[in-house]
Nucleic acid binder design. Structure first.
Length: 432
DNA sequence: TCTGGGGTCCTAGGACCC
DNA sequence: TCTGGGGTCCTAGGACCC
């Protein structure tokens, strides 16, 4: 019996609302630059590489998600597209405000990503759902300045569909209620199957060879066959399209099972010394996150790579080390990562990217020491890290750091069009 | 010159054990 | 020619998401 098989004995009706910020990063920029309203705006990925957020006006100019900036320069110039480097401190803070506002409506919500949340509307009167969603939208707009759309449906997958259609249909007022069967039929029939949440290009191609091209066709396809094609994941999606909820609201944010810090360099790196410095910085970020969720890691992976888009000598390598005792100590993890790096680094290449992954993550509350461990040393590590974190929280990131992180970071990333951190740094507060 | 970063889940297959 | 069977654990790779 599959865990998502229908359970007629219970047959509880759910209602999910998916609230999703429109062009979220661009909208954050607009909050602090009202002159951007009505203008084409894009926000770039790290190193000012690709467009990762676009307003409707920018989309209308043909700018696609992930388009490299240097390939759309002509559009940007001709139509005076306003371009911003990404400012994650600002977006993270705006996200927190949006989620805080949503939480005032119900404690039953799941923060799904930086710009969207599932909200449970179980138990609300069916005929008041759309109006209630309009209220939620209006309050988020009023209290944060962020425009949103809301999709309402009996399952998460359908709520995703409803949200997507609400964004596209002007006249929907930003809200679409897909609770009734007739609306579901109509919308799923006109939705390409690859636009369903969880169906990517590969799955869509597989389904296409069996004549399944729309969301409605996937919904009505034989479930066992769908599972043979797309594993249990596909079966769940198909069931959700039928209105049978298999993806529950996850209100608790579980601790991360892996933590990655990887970035392209602002310019190519050739020397081991610079690479050691970069890796030390990446470990510093990852270890901060690790301590932030009160975990220890037992495994660290390091990788280095050259520019895969250029016709130059290519090199990629990765290596890993196991930490006999779990640790969240920046110093200890840097030591391990540096040892791995020395093993995989080859001189003579122009490296453009490196990264660090922490894995085999376990709670710090129950550390397991090996027989020969110096437990007092680990306790000292923990105390040191706590002190450093406290100072950096108060005085700013990297006020205190490990010496191998260097001071110049000449390899660091570019962000030439970054707006100030209006909400998270005193010196960047708006003056009125 | 210039092409993101950080996650999750599932499955298959190998190693190992009894 | 025939070469056990069943279980667990781990890892790599695929697919997808925002």
């Amino acid at each position: 019996m599959h865990q998502c098989d229908p359970q007629p004995a219970i047959n509880r009706e759910h209602v999910f609302a998916l609230v999703d910020g429109n062009s979220f990063y661009c909208s954050c920029e607009r909050v602090f630059h009202p002159s951007l309203i009505g203008q084409p705006v894009i926000v770039l990925s790290n190193n000012d590489g690709c467009a990762i957020s676009r307003t409707d006006e920018a989309k209308a100019l043909g700018i696609k998600m992930g388009d490299p900036l240097h390939l759309i320069k002509h559009i940007v110039a001709r139509h005076r597209v306003r371009v911003f480097s990404s400012n994650y401190a600002l977006y993270g803070d705006m996200s927190a405000r949006m989620m805080h506002t949503l939480a005032q409506f119900t404690p039953h919500m799941q923060v799904y990503s930086i710009d969207e949340a599932f909200v449970s509307l179980d138990g609300f009167a069916r005929d008041g759902l759309t109006e209630y969603a309009r209220t939620i939208r209006a309050v988020v707009r009023r209290d944060t300045g962020i425009p949103t759309c809301v999709g309402i449906a009996p399952t998460k997958v359908l709520a995703k569909v409803a949200n997507r259609v609400a964004k596209r249909r002007t006249g929907s007022g930003g809200v679409l209620n897909m609770c009734d069967a007739a609306t579901q039929d109509e919308i799923l029939d006109s939705l390409p199957v690859e636009d369903v949440w969880g169906i990517g290009a590969r799955s869509a191609a597989t389904l296409g060879t069996h004549g399944v091209r729309t969301a409605k066709q996937l919904r009505d396809h034989d479930l066992d066959h769908t599972q043979r094609l797309l594993t249990i994941v596909g079966r769940r999606i198909a069931m959700e399209l039928r209105g049978q909820s298999c993806l529950p609201l996850q209100m608790i944010q579980e601790a991360r099972k892996q933590i990655i810090s990887s970035k392209s360099f602002g310019r190519p790196v050739r020397e081991l010394d610079e690479m050691l410095e970069a890796v030390a910085n990446y470990v510093t970020r990852a270890a901060e996150k690790l301590r932030g969720q009160h975990s220890l890691c037992h495994h660290v992976t390091v990788f280095v790579q050259t520019n895969r888009f250029q016709n130059v000598p290519q090199y990629y390598n990765s290596g890993a080390a196991t930490l006999a005792t779990g640790t969240a100590s920046t110093v200890r993890i840097i030591q391990a990562a540096h040892q791995v790096l020395r093993g995989i680094f080859r001189a003579g290449f122009k490296y453009t990217k490196a990264g660090v992954m922490l894995a085999d993550i376990r709670p710090a509350s129950a550390p397991q020491f090996s027989l020969f461990d110096d437990q007092q040393a680990h306790a000292r590590d923990a105390t040191l890290a706590r002190t450093v974190d406290a100072i950096n929280t108060r005085m700013g990131r990297d006020t205190l750091k490990v010496a191998t992180c260097g001071t110049t970071q000449a390899w660091g990333m570019n962000a030439k069009m970054r707006t100030p951190c209006y909400t998270t740094r005193w010196q960047d507060l708006l003056r009125v």
